[in-house]
Amino acid sequence: MKKIVLFASGNGSNVENIIQYFKDRETVSIVGVFSNNTHAGVIAKAQQHKVPVFTFDKKELNEGFVLKKINALHPDLIVLAGFLLKFPEHIIAEYPNKIINIHPALLPKYGGKGMYGMHVHQAVLENHEKETGITIHYVNEHYDEGEFVFQTSVTIEDCQTPEEIAAKVHELEHNHFPKTIEKILTRNT
Rank of each mutant, 00 (worst) to 15 (best):
A40I: 03
G133K: 02
F150Q: 07
S9T: 04
P162Y: 08
I19A: 06
A166T: 09
A105N: 05
Y21C: 09
V51L: 03
K179V: 09
G111S: 10
E16C: 06
K86Y: 04
H137Y: 12
F87Q: 07
I136L: 10
K113F: 10
L73W: 10
G32R: 00
A44D: 15
P96W: 00
P162S: 13
A123N: 11
T186C: 12
I43L: 09
F65N: 06
I4N: 01
H121G: 06
T132P: 00
Y21D: 05
Q160G: 15
R187F: 14
E182P: 02
H49P: 00
A8E: 04
Y21W: 10
A93I: 10
Q151D: 14
T161V: 07
E129V: 03
T132E: 08
K45G: 00
H103I: 06
L73Y: 04
V31F: 04
V169L: 02
V66N: 02
E164A: 11
G146V: 03
Q20I: 15
I184A: 07
L172T: 07
A123G: 05
N71I: 13
H49T: 08
Y95H: 03
N37T: 11
E182C: 05
E60V: 09
K168G: 05
P162V: 11
Y21K: 01
A8D: 07
E89V: 14
H142R: 14
E89S: 14
K3W: 03
R187C: 13
A72S: 15
N97G: 13
I4Q: 03
H121V: 11
T186I: 15
K130W: 11
Y110K: 06
K98R: 14
I78F: 04
T161M: 10
A72D: 14
A72E: 15
V33G: 06
A167M: 09
H103Y: 07
E171L: 14
L172R: 03
L106A: 10
K98S: 11
F65Q: 07
L80D: 06
G64T: 00
K69I: 02
Y21M: 04
L84V: 13
L125H: 02
L185V: 07
K68G: 10
E147L: 06
E129P: 05
P108L: 01
A40Q: 06
K86R: 12
V169I: 09
K109A: 14
A123R: 07
A93G: 15
